[in-house]
């Protein structure tokens, strides 16, 4: 009952946001420049939320998220540009293959813990990138030229789907199992939870939506090149999740929105931007390791008096 209420509130809110923005676009107030920023915002939210399910919910530290984004970007582009399929089909294919890649990477690596897992995911992401670099079918280093097909509508619908699926996962039995792994893997193992299974599932879901974001990204920027998906991109995504709060979906989304705006205003000063990013990363970790929102959600802020959700 309570869950479905949150669902409806979110859906209505999404519709309202969509209607307002669409209205502004059709009146001509939001020109391509702002539409483009909005699409980027959507892409970043998807990336942040999809990494949030891996790091924030399941507690598995992955720093190779850009690899799955690359898989989604390339496979959706192959579907639309080489096979001539429509964009929605292409996005589905990209996301599907990314999920598959997530499974393939996840099954062997997720038995590792902590920093070993981190470095292994980074390694896999680099391997994925190097594979694309060496396949001439997708243009190798020159990259693939892509017709622009993404519209703000596609991006927004994808974000809504991403958030709905991941929020539902988190609130489900599976999600609670995943959270228990984050809190204490051995204890949850002892409670009879198949930890490997849930870790891999969460990883695959995260990869799926990273792939979807990659598909939107590919069809928004005319050309994709392997260099775009290096580990700096993975770190970018990591910053959203860390800043927003490890374990908070809305935190990750808000951080993604906020940093997209900041970075488009700081576009003229790229070095300053990176210095600020890294300082923020360090300072947040030193003084507020749980991120800005901790594990709290923005919805819980409006439920004063009810049981607060700050677990440590």
């Amino acid at each position: 009952m309570k869950k479905s209420k949150a669902f409806w509130v979110f859906s209505v809110l999404a519709l309202v946001i969509y209607a307002v923005v669409q209205g502004l676009i059709s009146v001509g107030i939001l020109d391509l420049y702002y539409q483009n920023i909005l699409v980027q915002m959507c892409i970043n939210i998807m990336l942040a939320v999809s990494l949030h399910i891996i790091i924030g919910i399941t507690g598995q530290f992955s720093i190779g998220h850009a690899g799955f984004m690359a898989v989604g970007a390339y496979f959706s582009a192959i579907a639309t540009m080489k096979l001539g399929l429509p964009l929605p089909v292409g996005l589905l294919i990209g996301a599907g293959v990314a999920a598959l890649a997530g499974l393939l990477v996840g099954i062997p690596t997720l038995r590792l813990k902590g920093d070993y897992l981190a470095i292994a995911t980074l390694g896999f992401a680099e391997i994925i990138r190097i594979i694309f670099l060496n396949v001439d079918y997708v243009g190798g280093a020159a990259g693939m030229v892509i017709t622009n097909m993404t519209t703000w509508t596609y991006a927004f619908v994808s974000v809504v789907i991403t958030i709905l699926v991941i929020a539902n996962f988190t609130n489900s039995r599976h999600g609670r199992a995943a959270i228990s792994i984050r809190e204490d893997e051995i204890a949850s193992d002892a409670m009879g939870i198949n930890t490997t299974y849930y870790k891999v599932v969460a990883f695959a879901i995260g990869s799926l939506f990273a792939g979807l974001a990659g598909g939107i990204f590919a069809h928004n920027f005319f050309i994709i090149q392997p260099t775009t998906f290096g580990f700096l991109k993975s770190f970018d995504i990591l910053i959203y999740v860390v800043l927003g709060g490890l374990g908070s979906l809305s935190g990750a989304a808000i951080a993604a929105i906020f940093l997209t705006i900041v970075s488009s205003y700081l576009a003229e000063y790229p070095e300053t931007r990176m210095i600020i990013y890294s300082l923020v990363l360090i300072i947040v970790m030193l003084y507020r390791p749980s991120g800005l929102m901790g594990t709290k959600e923005i919805t819980s802020l409006f439920k004063f008096g009810k049981k607060g959700g700050s677990q440590k």
Partner: peptide, 24 residues
């Protein structure tokens, strides 16, 4: 005494900071 993740993220942050300060 912080989590491994916090330490690792800090290390990444320090690394990015040094690189970008030098670039700056």
């Amino acid at each position: 005494n912080a989590t491994r993740i916090a330490a690792l993220i800090t290390a990444i942050g320090v690394s990015l900071l040094i690189e970008n300060v030098v670039i700056y």
